[in-house]
């Protein structure tokens, strides 16, 4: 099976969907002539032309809102935010318009838009460029939120997101763009809302999303190697819809849970998951659900300190041991 990067997987997904559906258009800052700030769309302008691959001005409220309007009339715009952090500039268009238009029209209007871009820290770009807004986005009924942790999922989830008739926030990760794994050629879909058990285990469930899953897998190796602990690693892949069953089944099996994510702790996805476990699997727990997040402050610039602020293999390993005490 071919091994391709997360970046190439995203490009393949968007290209296949552009070829499949004449209403799909990719728009964003630097996506066309510049070949993409992170080269996700490299070569796509040459292949599909300026009608399908559109450079926008730096004008997030304007072009995201424009995409919402175009989606209302039947296009399927894929809007790239150079950094997902810039969603804040388009907040009204995303969360008042895209999220609410179906509801406020009594179901008369759909908004099949995908808003995508990297949402992560760890690259020393400071607090303005390091937002991890998955819980903020998922807070809004009407919105779907997807956070792929690897190339295979990135492709399959992107194709599903583009075909989805509801607005999807698709949160990528600059650190993962160059990470590769086996990805089959051609058509496959990963449905939104289906978690993936990345590693089966019996002693603790390490649940999370995004790049934290890659770190958790390494931490699980360490736990096995040093303490013969069998950790199960569950990648949610999709925050809303959420695979509650897989979460509960894992926790019922292991009786312990550590939720790992790059977000800040307050009202995080992990907080929601801990609440669900408490409601629905309390009797199975042998320890309180533990969460590991970024340290609760704006993203620090200082490169060695930013490493410490984010989840790391070492921090996950330690938190898992704490949960198992």
């Amino acid at each position: 099976m071919p091994v391709i990067t997360y970046r190439e997987a995203l490009r393949a997904a968007m290209s296949e969907e552009i070829e499949r559906d004449p209403n799909v258009v990719l728009m964003g800052e630097e996506v066309a002539q510049f070949n993409g700030a992170y080269k996700i769309s490299e070569g796509m302008l040459a292949k599909y032309g300026p009608k399908r691959i559109v450079d926008t001005p730096i004008s997030e409220a304007g072009f995201i809102g424009m995409g919402v309007g175009a989606a209302m009339l039947g296009l399927r715009p894929v809007m790239e935010l150079m950094f997902f952090s810039f969603y804040s500039v388009a907040f009204d268009q995303i969360f008042n318009n895209a999220a609410n238009i179906r509801y406020m029209s009594g179901g008369l209007i759909n908004c099949p838009i995908v808003i995508r871009g990297p949402a992560n820290g760890g690259t020393n770009v400071g607090a303005t460029h390091s937002h991890t807004p998955e819980s903020i986005a998922a807070y809004h009924p009407g919105i779907k939120v997807v956070v792929p942790s690897n190339a295979y999922d990135a492709k399959g989830l992107m194709k599903s997101a583009i075909r989805d008739n509801d607005p999807v926030m698709f949160l990528e990760n600059t650190i993962l763009y160059g990470e590769a794994c086996e990805v089959p050629d051609g058509e496959y879909l990963v449905p939104l809302g289906k978690a993936s058990v990345m590693r089966a285990g019996t002693d603790i469930s390490i649940i999370g999303h995004g790049r934290s899953i890659q770190l958790a897998l390494k931490a699980a190796d360490l736990l096995k190697e040093k303490h013969n602990i069998n950790a199960e690693v569950v990648d949610l892949r999709s925050i809303r819809p959420l695979d509650v069953d897989t979460i509960l089944n894992s926790v019922k099996k292991t009786s312990r849970c550590l939720y790992v994510e790059e977000s800040k702790p307050f009202c995080s996805v992990g907080a929601m998951v801990a609440c669900l476990i408490s409601d629905q699997a309390f009797d199975y727990l042998d320890a309180p659900v533990k969460r590991l997040t970024s340290i609760d402050a704006p993203a620090i610039y200082s490169p060695p300190l930013e490493k410490l602020q984010l989840p790391s293999v070492e921090r996950i390993y330690q938190a898992a041991l704490d949960t198992l005490k």
Binding site: G67, M72, L75, D92, N97
Partner: peptide
Amino acid sequence: HYFDPSRNFWGGHGIVGGQIPLGTGLAYA
């Protein structure tokens, strides 16, 4: 928030000016 897409009427929007990018998008489409 009135809407009637069957009559090409897309609302009815509550935030001052927030509908203007949408209108621009309708024209784009």
